[in-house]
Amino acid sequence: MGRMPYHIHVFLYRERKGSFEFAVFERSDLPDIWQGVSGGGEAGESVVQAALRECMEEAGVTEPGRLYPLDSVSVMRSTVFAEWTQAWGKDIVVLPMYFFGMPYDGEVTLSEEHLAFEWMDYEKANARVGMPDQNTALWELNERLRRKNLKRAIPAWMERPWRMGEGR
């Protein structure tokens, strides 16, 4: 059945000496592009399941922390994944992208999708991440951590499996 037309983005974070660090990954297909864990949903899985799976596949996260949904939401062009554009049909033009934060203090194991990763403070991570929507989500996560108001419930629709043609 393939991938569903939505994308997730997770910024792993940890606390060190009273401040926060964020794991930022360099893509292997686009060197010099750094981001959090990112990927598309698979058939029959929920947005939350996709986020947890991508964390395991891309960073080796076998004992994930709690996922915290961010208010930041974005879209990406469906043509980024040319191999899926035909399968999705003419109606899928953009894909929603949902952002999360996840506390994580374990080992990171890179997949073939990345060349490198680093734990960085907010300023360095923000400078390294080059996509404005990702910068906004990273800013929101940092701001929520700073304000101590990250703990938020995951909306029920993010827990339900997605099917082609469904929205929220």
Rank of each mutant, 00 (worst) to 15 (best):
E113Y: 11
D29K: 11
R152S: 12
G44E: 08
A153N: 13
T85V: 08
P69N: 04
M102H: 03
M120W: 03
S46G: 02
N126T: 08
I154S: 07
L95E: 09
A156S: 15
E26Y: 09
L30M: 14
V80T: 14
L145D: 01
G2E: 05
E113H: 13
R16E: 12
R163W: 08
E112H: 13
H9E: 07
E45Q: 10
A43V: 12
L110Q: 03
E21M: 05
A137I: 00
H7L: 12
W84Q: 09
C55M: 12
E45G: 02
R3W: 07
V108G: 06
E112K: 13
K148A: 15
P5D: 00
S74Y: 06
G44D: 04
D29A: 03
L70C: 02
R53A: 10
A127E: 12
E15W: 06
K90F: 14
E83Y: 08
D29Q: 09
R147Q: 09
M102G: 01
M120A: 10
E113G: 11
A87S: 09
P132M: 11
L110Y: 04
R77K: 14
E143I: 02
E143K: 04
G36N: 00
V80F: 15
W162Y: 13
N126R: 15
W34Q: 05
A87D: 12
L30P: 04
M4L: 06
T79D: 09
G65L: 00
V108A: 00
D29F: 10
Q134H: 11
P155N: 09
N126W: 11
L70I: 02
E140K: 02
L70N: 04
M76I: 15
D32L: 11
E159T: 15
W34H: 10
P5A: 06
Y98G: 02
T109G: 07
S46W: 01
I33V: 15
L141A: 04
A137L: 00
M76K: 13
M120F: 03
W84L: 11
D91E: 15
T109S: 10
W157K: 15
F25E: 00
A127L: 10
L52A: 04
